[in-house]
């Protein structure tokens, strides 16, 4: 009947659809521009800093005083304090986070899980400035009452410990995901061989989930290195080259926050130096994030 009518089956041009699609594409690509803008802007100012004739490679890595305003460019005091606070944070958060993850994934009943998980979720949602308050007004007095006079009011230990508590939920939730992804047959196999629950968890499940746990660990370090408010409030203001965790020392992030909080004139060496530090931070966290993704992909045990 309709055979005489012919249908035009070629695609109709729809300008509206194309416009929408290009807008959506732009929205998607914007994130690339964000990264490029970060690299360009940080790189540009950092270039000005390193281009300064006073800033030499030997001074930057060879001396231990950081005061760009009066010509001291040794980066080490900022780096060591960042490392010490991050290290303390990891010493707190890795064992605690991992234990919590093992308990939640292997031992806890569904009811216990639903009661305990929110504790970690609330901890994860607390703003870091509140953790800073906690570090200064709870952890520092606590440390002072345990270790006495040698703990300064501002100190790296209290900032590091509280930072560890802050990172704990991250480590535990990422590790728990990795542990629960291990297939049940492995556990049943271990039980059949007569292994206890503990032996199964630690000797069978944990090694199988190691890639995910490693990734969680690396992301945790990256969070600790980039964390600002806790160290800005509790770790001290003023670069200090020391390895004593009970002494005050400013970290890279804390230094940026303090200097830029004051009135800072653009195009001064101080201003440029902040961008150099921020660029280092960005690169370190970027590399850590990429490594963690690589660890997951490279070392993941696959079960069919």
């Amino acid at each position: 009947m309709n055979q005489s009518r012919s249908f035009d089956l070629t695609k109709k041009p729809r300008p509206g659809e194309s416009i929408i699609q290009s807008l959506l594409f732009l929205a998607g690509v914007l994130s690339i521009f964000t990264t490029l803008a970060i690299v360009y802007e940080l790189g540009k100012e950092a270039w000005l800093f390193f281009g300064n004739p006073d800033v030499t490679f030997a001074k930057f890595f060879g001396t231990t005083t950081w005061q760009p305003g009066i010509g001291h460019f040794g980066i080490w005091p900022l780096v060591t304090s960042t490392l010490i606070t991050s290290l303390i944070a990891m010493f707190v958060s890795l064992p605690l986070g991992l234990s919590a993850a093992i308990y939640l994934s292997e031992y806890a009943s569904p009811r216990a899980r639903s009661a305990l998980k929110p504790v970690l979720e609330i901890l994860a949602g607390i703003p870091t400035v509140v953790y800073g308050y906690f570090a200064l007004l709870f952890m520092t007095p606590l440390l002072q009452s345990i270790f006495g006079e040698k703990v300064e009011v501002y100190n790296m230990a209290s900032a590091g410990i509280v930072m560890g508590i802050m990172i704990l939920p991250l480590i535990s939730s990422m590790s728990e995901d990795a542990l629960s992804a291990v297939p049940r047959v492995l556990r049943e196999g271990a039980y059949a061989m007569g292994a206890t629950k503990f032996e199964t968890s630690v000797q069978i499940v944990l090694p199988a989930a190691l890639s995910g746990i490693g990734a969680a660990f690396i992301i945790g370090i990256s969070r600790a290195v980039g964390e600002t408010m806790i160290v800005a409030i509790a770790a001290g203001s003023g670069p200090n080259f020391t390895f004593n965790p009970f002494k005050a020392a400013e970290t890279m992030t804390g230094h940026i926050a303090r200097i830029s909080g004051g009135d800072l004139s653009y195009n001064s060496i101080d201003y440029n130096s902040l961008f150099a530090i921020a660029l280092m931070l960005f690169l370190v966290t970027l590399v850590l994030n990429l490594v963690s993704q690589w660890v997951v992909n490279r070392f993941r045990e696959r079960y069919e």
Binding site: S31, S222, R223, V225, T228, A278
Partner: peptide, 16 residues
């Protein structure tokens, strides 16, 4: 890139 941006420290966004 989006996954990585989610992990960039907030202070770097401040500098940006």
């Amino acid at each position: 890139n989006i996954n990585n941006l989610a992990g960039v420290p907030s202070i770097v966004y401040g500098m940006l």
